[in-house]
Design a protein around this nucleic acid. Structure first.
Lengths: 233, 233
DNA sequence: GTAATTTTCTGACTCGCGTTTAATATATTT
DNA sequence: AAATATATTAAACGCGAGTCAGAAAATTAC
């Protein structure tokens, strides 16, 4: 069995687990389910993946690769200025999170993992097999790739005049990304703010977009934000 | 045993589990550890809490209450304009996340839970005992409280002229909160961006602060962001 | 072409741990 | 003090992640 065949088998298991994780979630998916769906024995899954978390890391890698595609798809479009690219990225980022919830959850989980990793005291809380896994390092790289692509968009924007020139591109992009991460996370609770709340899913989005763009452009028209029609995304 | 005594016993178990969760993390903490630390039998913990997740929800409630205190401590200070309050909130929010990592992790976990809750298809993935728990509803309320306090800060800022008046206070505050959530989450990976990265923990923070304030004030001085001395927070 | 050796694969087994339960002690009511 | 309700325990259950001894298949050696 060459490298080729081994990778194909790994892919089979990976795809089975992705299907199951999407369907029932990580915890409800049993290793035996994964084995059955992959039409192999339970023991064999442990031949290809160190343990369940290692498998999840492989899923996370797949997830992050797909997210990276979202970034790449936008930067390769010609005839869009930098700011518009970032607005488009913002929309597609939210679409991605909505339509690939399990994947996005995995990405966020990874970010949390890195938090632990950076803290010498908490590093030991991470499954050592995960740390030893090839995926962990790769994931850091893909994350960095996304950062680089996004930063390019800001650079574009500064060059074409759609973004104010005094901004440091990398820090600016990561701040935008931060807004996207946080907005997506807060959507849930905001969806609940009934009664005395003046905000809801329909009204927040346009305000959010305006603030994001104002921050980058720095040219304010003192006009009211107009609510959008229909549902979001 | 009156309500009083029961609550005291619950508190004992809660405090034991908080200590253990901080020390070893949720998964590494066994229900028997909680029982031993509380000096009761394992079975009895299930008399006071429905299951481990229910206990974790109680911990989350405590966590969110503490976060709410961070919000309240700032709004009650006199002689600060709205913008300065929000800058201070931002600093203290990050401090809170750093110094109470387990608590903050619990809060983020809750936000993820609400995401599932809002999705009819994924609602069933949530432990039904958690949904039935008194804590779940209470957590939504505390979240809302935080939103209200933060919104008040924006309202202050608009009144005292430190924040541009055309902004919708609630949407604006939630956007700020989104920035905080996302910044904190991205800190981990950014801490890794070595080699060709021009950003690191020291350089991002001041840029982030500038962008946040620019967004709110809308008065740009076209000056370079100056790096801060020393470590962050 | 077959024996020796390595690699792939299986399914029964172990073991830890969350949760349940039957039995007991303690408190409360009548 | 008997009857009832509440608090508490220890043992047992059940599930599922991970292991392991050995079978099957492929590869190499002669």
């Amino acid at each position: 069995m060459g490298v080729q065949e081994r990778q194909q088998k790994e892919k089979l298991i990976l795809e089975a687990s992705i299907r199951l994780f999407i369907e029932k979630g990580y915890h409800a998916t049993k290793m035996e389910d994964v084995a059955k769906t992959s039409k192999i024995s339970k023991g064999l899954t442990y031949f290809y993946y160190k343990n369940k978390e290692d498998l999840y890391m492989a899923v996370t890698k797949k997830a992050f690769d797909e997210l990276k595609d979202v970034f790449r798809d936008i930067i390769k479009i010609k005839g869009k200025n930098g700011l518009d690219m970032l607005v488009e990225l913002s929309n597609n980022y939210f679409k991605f999170a909505k339509n690939n919830r399990m994947f996005y959850e995995a990405i966020l989980n990874f970010m949390g993992l890195v938090q632990l990793y950076n803290d010498e005291k908490l590093k030991s809380n991470i499954d050592p097999l995960v740390l030893a896994s090839e995926h962990f390092q790769k994931l850091l790289e893909v994350h960095h790739d996304c950062g680089k692509i996004g930063t390019q968009m800001v650079v574009h924007g500064i060059k074409d005049g759609s973004i104010r020139p005094e901004l440091q591109p990398e820090a600016t992009f990561y701040t935008i990304w931060a807004m996207l991460v946080g907005y997506e996370r807060l959507l849930g609770p905001v969806g609940f703010e009934g009664k005395d709340a003046k905000i809801n899913l329909e009204t927040w989005k346009p305000s959010f977009n305006r603030l994001l763009q104002d921050m980058l452009k720095g040219t304010f028209q003192a006009q009211k934000v107009q609510p959008v029609q229909g549902s979001l995304f």
